[in-house]
Design a binder for these strands. Structure first.
Length: 371
DNA sequence: AAGCCGGGGAG
DNA sequence: CTCCCAGGCTT
């Protein structure tokens, strides 16, 4: 594979490679302004690598630049902030449930969320469903701008679908592209505009879809976040981060807010298989079903919240069933589960779409932890 | 521009 | 444990 990389024909792309460690611990390494990359050679090298080692994925069926728009679209939504291995499982499940955009448009939202159950970021499913009803009416968009107008479709997804299905010359800008370009240029702090400008310049207009997939494949399988396999990279000879000796230092880690600690009280009325469930509303898990629950207010005890929850339903509180913790990126949830009794309608749990948190709570009730 | 939105893989 | 993932919407 390395043999396919261009023999740099005597030309060293960077005469003065940056050295992050020499700049000191608190000073970011200098960025390369606008690199004079040899576009024809670089494009040929990456596309040759992609044609040889590109991943075979279910949504990649069909002619290059003329893929089935529905399949590409569903895949791109599923893959937002979701790794390919995981997205593939949900892709197969989703396409089986909704083989066509018409089938998706005709389905009730609960069925769409059931197919999405456990995949996270459920606004993706709600927006995809709404957009499908729009497409079933008006037909598939015929351009980047048309796709961009659909709910749930932003600059990344519009570029991906229009390049893969319409052969439009639009460069995607995702986490892979950001990392690959940050390293190629040794830029520690790549802004979205910086990445887009360089992605636009690099895009091979002759094969926009294949080019986009090639950069993303490179980022996912070779130019990986923590331990890049530079020995297998077709762009190594032009890579300023490789030349620096510390490619993993680019881009610098993003500053993220600390996870917030939240305590929640939930009640099981019925059994783990047939129980009282409520439909969540709002941004967090909106549209999903779950056990009746209340977060603890400031200064409130678990017992206070349990009393408040049971007064709302209404229900009579029962035995403590167990506790669990659940991580949600920006939240660290501790859930206290109690039994309760009430005269309220029960639902078959297996028929509803639940979050992982609620699935954990039901599993806890099915087999109480010995603590 | 910055927060928010799930869940899991990799190191 | 931390950081990241074929991002988009809201404020």
């Amino acid at each position: 594979m390395v043999s396919a990389a261009p023999v740099a024909s005597g030309r060293a792309p960077y005469t003065a490679p940056v050295s992050p460690s020499a700049a000191g611990p608190s000073v970011a390494p200098p960025s390369v302004p606008v690199s004079p990359l040899p576009l024809p050679e670089l494009r040929a090298a990456l596309l040759a690598w992609f044609d040889r080692t590109g991943r075979s994925l279910p949504w990649r069926a069909g002619a290059e630049g003329a893929r089935d728009p529905y399949r590409v679209w569903v895949a791109e939504i599923l893959l937002q902030q979701t790794q390919v291995a995981r997205g593939q499982i949900y892709y197969d499940r989703f396409l089986t449930a909704f083989p066509t955009v018409q089938a998706l448009a005709d389905a009730p939202q609960e069925a769409v969320l059931k197919a999405w159950e456990g995949c996270g970021y459920y606004a993706r499913a709600r927006n995809l469903h709404r957009a499908a009803q729009q497409v079933a009416q008006d037909g598939f968009p015929g351009s980047y701008d048309g796709w961009l107008a659909l709910p749930g479709v932003g600059p990344y997804t519009a570029a991906a679908v229009s390049s893969l299905a319409l052969n439009e010359a639009r460069a995607v800008n995702d986490g892979n592209v950001r990392r690959v370009l940050a390293r190629l240029h040794a830029e520690p702090q790549p802004t979205p505009a910086w990445v887009q400008a360089r992605a636009d310049a690099l895009l091979d207009p002759a094969r926009p879809g294949a080019w986009n997939e090639a950069v993303m494949d490179l980022g996912a399988t070779v130019c990986t976040p923590a331990a890049p396999r530079c020995d297998a990279c077709p762009l190594r000879v032009w890579c300023a981060a490789f030349a620096s000796g510390t490619p993993a230092a680019y881009p610098a880690p993003k500053v993220r807010a600390a996870a917030q600690e939240v305590t929640v009280v939930a009640v099981l009325i019925g059994t783990p298989h047939r129980a009282v469930l409520e439909r969540r509303s709002g941004a967090l898990l909106g549209g999903l079903m779950g056990l009746p629950a209340e977060p603890l207010a400031a200064g409130e005890t678990v017992q206070d919240a349990l009393t408040r929850l049971c007064a709302r339903l209404p229900a009579r509180p029962g035995a403590f069933l167990g506790r669990l913790t659940h991580a949600m990126t920006h939240r660290r949830v501790t859930l206290h589960l109690h039994a309760a009794q009430a005269d309220l309608p029960l639902r078959m749990v297996a028929d509803e779409a639940l979050s992982r948190l609620d699935q954990k709570a039901l599993a806890l009730a099915a087999q109480p932890a010995l603590l």
